[in-house]
Each structure stands twice: as C-alpha cells, then as structure tokens.
Design a protein around this nucleic acid. Structure first.
Lengths: 234, 234
DNA sequence: GACTATCATAATGTCTGACCATTTGACCAT
DNA sequence: ATGGTCAAATGGTCAGACATTATGATAGTC
C-alpha cells in the first residue's frame, strides 16, 4: 500500500468493521448463513469478534445497506439474513441515474433494450404455463377496465411475468430493477394521459398474441410501440 | 428530540440515522451537494443535527455503502461526496447473483442481452469518432498479440467503447456493471483456453467491421458467436 | 373461563465522553 | 534545503449507560 511491503500484512487492518463485513459475507457466499437465519445479538457478536458494540453495528449497517441483512428491534429481534432482491439493485440504479444527469429518455431506452431482450428469450422459451399466466393477467386487466377498478400493478405484473417466461432469473432481476427508477422518472413528466391504461391493456394483449404465435417481428414491434408511448423516444 | 420535541415530527421517522441519510440524499438529489464537496466533520454534523456522533456515523456508513460518499481520515479528511458509479451497481449485482444460485450461464446470457441491445443502438448511432476509437482499440490489441504483450483490459475497453457508441449512458452504466460479476462467474469455470485472446481480438474486429458497414445481422451474429465462446450457452 | 391490562424481559437504538490511529502541515534542527 | 518532530484535526474505536420497542408472561377483571 505505502511502499512495497507486500511480503507482510497485505494489511490485516483496514477498518475493523469492514473485516467483520467481509467475514460475514464469506459465510453468506459459502452458504453457512442463509436467508432467515438470525445472527447473534450485537453484544454477543462484539464479544465474539473482540470488538466493541459500535464496530459490530457499523458492520451490520453496511450489510443492511447491501440488502443482505434486515434488523428488527425488540425481543426476538436482531439481524436476520435476507436474500438480496432486485429492489436494492433498483435503488442503487436510481442513485446512479438520479445523480448523473441521465435523461428519462435514456432510462426508458435502456429499459426498452432489456424488454426486447427478454422478449427474444421468451419467444424461444415461453411455456404454455407462461402464456396462460400472461393471458390471465391480460384478462384480469381487461375485466378491471370495464369495472373501472384498474390497478397499475397489473401492468407491472405483466412485465414481471413476461420476464419470468425468459427462464432466466438474472435477466428477470435486472429487468425488475428498472421498475423503480422508471416510475421515478415517469413522475417528472406527468402527462395527464386519459386512456393510457386502456392502451396499456391493449398493447399487452397484442404483445401476448404475437408471442403466442411466435411472431418475433410483430412482438418486437408491439413492444416498441408500447414502451415508446408518452416519452419522446425516437 | 427527547425533551419537548413532541410538537414536531410526532413519530416521524424510524431511525434517526435514516432521517439524516434522507436529508443528505435530498441535498444530493437537488444538487446542493455535488461530487467533490466535503461534508462538515462528524462532530459538527452531530451538533447540527442535534444527535450524537455515533448516529451521524451510522448515516455516513449507509451513504458510503450506497456509493454516495467516500471517507478519508486525517486532518483535511472527512466525508466527501462522490458520484455513484456503475461499480456499486456491479457489486450489488454480484451480491444478488452470488446469493441466489444463479448459474454463470444465466449471467452470461443476461449480458448477451445487454450487449445485443447496445449493438442495435450503436448500429443506429455510432459516429465516425466511435468507429475510429474502436478501430484504435482493435489495432492496439492486434499489435499486442504479435508483441505477446496482450492485456485483457483491451477487451474490456472494446466493449466499454462500444457501449459508449450507443450514445446512452444509462445503457452504458448498466452494461458496465455486468463486468465485475461476469469476471467472477468466469473464474469458476476456468477453461484453459490457449488462443482465447487471439479469438477475442479477431471477434472484435469482425464485430467492428460489420458495425462499420451497418450490417445488423452480421454484427449480431458475430457478437453472439463472440460471447458464447466458452460457456455452454445454447 | 375468556378477555384485557400491566409488567418483565431482551433486543436494538441512541447518547455521552473518552481515547486511539492517521494524516497533514508547520516548525525546528541539522 | 533536508529531514525529523510535533501539534492539530479527523475518523475509528471503546466502554457504559439510558431509551425505545416488541414479545410473552402474568395478574386482574368481567
């Protein structure tokens, strides 16, 4: 680090809290700690690691920020292992996008890239179950439209289910992580679209039909049309 | 906070440290705090917020984990604002992938999706400068091969420059964030490829040529061939 | 007996004040 | 000039205490 003393102590002493984080992450990676497990109390950990409670708390804070832990207070509380979800990815993505003067159009386009990729995979792999589930969602949405009880969540569900049809969880998680930042970006150009929901429902149905017939060009075209509504995406 | 402050913030927030995080993030979002700025010292912040130093430290720890702050010790040290980069995204992505039994194939495929999307955008938008820069990188790599001084970094550079040619920073950042997790996934199936570098260099050249001629099909085919080397990606 | 209110308990959350470690720059001696 | 020493500012850590919260047991009441 300083000169060339790489022969000894590559440095065993960064921050103590960071070392604790590394140790715990290692336990998570090897599977010795799994989601749902509960860590010992802060005081016990402090004694076990030979540090003070503050140091342990620092470490737990970091793990919490990484989405690897969840802390509950009260008796039978403590630090619980949680499997990191796409949510934290979305939050970090939001940070990067929000602090970087990236335009909403760029974000929308990035999402379009992912959705088209998902569509390609889904065209190859969607099972009958996938198609049936997507059909259910479309039907629910259509029914809700006539009931005037439409919930935008249904639109999210459609895309989430479509991502699942790609049979690739990595892709699904990444796509999922776009939802938060996009919602936020959408809030900034609040277009008072009247029948946006109606068109969304129709678009989804068109995409699904093209997907069912394995018509790649039609499906892609429909998805592009669908996702370029409302934003000035050329 | 404790004595008379029941008229304000009835029970407003959960943790005090989280409220501080929120306040600072708000300053970052509005641009009142920008990269490079330095926060007051922990002691000053503690006094300003009316909390203890430990609480301030908790907050800074969280901001640090989110990639929004960088902490240096010593006089003229402190918490410095940093623009979050794709690096933290990649780290969180690594977490999600590592703790979730996602196969390397899935990650590779997810990356393929991004790269193909980038390619599509680059086909539409790559400028002469972009093509020239990519040409430079290819040439450097080719030269390095005969010198036997090839640096794998050149491969990363190629893809990074290609992403930049998409003229979309959001896409670029996301693609960038895949590099770390992928390198890690690649380590696990260490194939002792002899001429892998040689083929990489050749592949890049083919992609670039197809891109230059705006030959979408050829470019995509070359990219698929290039990225499906070594992994059992059907 | 069933339901409600209260209290004990155990855990995290926070505070206080101190000391340690590291870095920077100024000051001083050679 | 060069090098060493030292003081100041800052984050890192420590120790002990009190505050807050949620759970469960217990006592009291209908």
């Amino acid at each position: 680090m300083s000169s060339d003393a790489s022969f000894l102590t590559p440095v065993a002493g960064g921050r103590a809290s960071q070392q604790i984080v590394d140790q715990i992450v290692e336990l998570l990676r090897t599977g010795e700690l799994k989601a749902g497990h509960r860590l010992p109390s802060e005081r016990q950990l402090a004694e076990a690691f030979g540090v003070s409670r503050v140091t342990v708390r620092d470490a737990i804070r970091i793990l919490q920020a990484r989405g690897l832990m969840e802390v509950k207070v009260g008796v039978s509380g403590g630090a619980f292992v949680t499997a990191p979800t796409a949510d934290v990815l979305g939050e970090r993505l939001s940070d990067v996008l929000a602090m970087s003067d990236i335009s909403p159009e760029e974000v929308a386009e990035a999402r379009l890239v992912m959705e088209l990729g998902i569509l390609d995979l889904a065209l190859k792999r969607a099972t009958d179950d996938d198609l049936a589930a997507l059909g259910d969602i479309c039907e629910q949405a259509e029914q809700a439209m006539v009931d005037d009880s439409y919930d935008p969540q249904l639109a999210s569900d459609f895309h989430a289910r479509l991502a699942a049809a790609s049979q690739n969880w990595a892709v699904t998680q990444v796509a999922e992580s776009f939802r938060g930042p996009l919602r936020m970006a959408a809030l900034r150009e609040r277009e008072p679209v009247d029948d946006a929901h109606q068109r969304t429902v129709e678009d989804h149905r068109v995409v699904l039909e093209a997907l069912t017939e394995r018509d790649r060009d039609a499906a892609r075209a429909a998805m592009v049309r669908h996702l370029t509504r409302g934003t000035s995406l050329t």
